[in-house]
Amino acid sequence: MPTLNHYLLLSAVLFAIGTAGVFVRRNLITILLSIEIMLNAVNLTFVAFGRAMGSADGQIIVFFVMTVAAAEAAIGLAIVIALFRHRESLNPDMFTQLKW
C-alpha cells in the first residue's frame, strides 16, 4: 500500500527530471515538454496531499493548473513556431540577442 511519502518521492523525482530537462536539452520543444513534466509533478503533489487530508481542494487546484498549463502550452508553441520561422532553428542558445 503506497503512502503519502511514496507519492511525494515520485513527485520530487519527476520535478527533478523536468528541471534537468529544461537546463540540459537544447530543443525548445523538449524544454516545453520538460516544463509540463514539472507542472505535473506539482499536480501529483496536490492530489496526494488532498487524498491524504481527505479534502477535494487539491484536486480543484489541479484543474486550475491544467487550464493554465494548456494556455501556456498554446502560447509557448506559438512563440516556438515564430522563432523557428525567424531563425530556422530551435536551439535556445541561438536566441541571445536580448542583452547589452
Binding site: T19, V22, F23, P92, D93, F95, T96, Q97, K99, W100
Partner: peptide, 16 residues
C-alpha cells in the same frame, strides 16, 4: 552588464 547574457536558460538557471 556582462551578467545579462541574453541566454534565457541562464536566466532560468539563476532563477532556479
Amino acid at each position: 552588464r556582462r551578467l545579462q547574457t541574453g541566454s534565457v536558460r541562464a536566466y532560468a538557471a539563476s532563477l532556479f
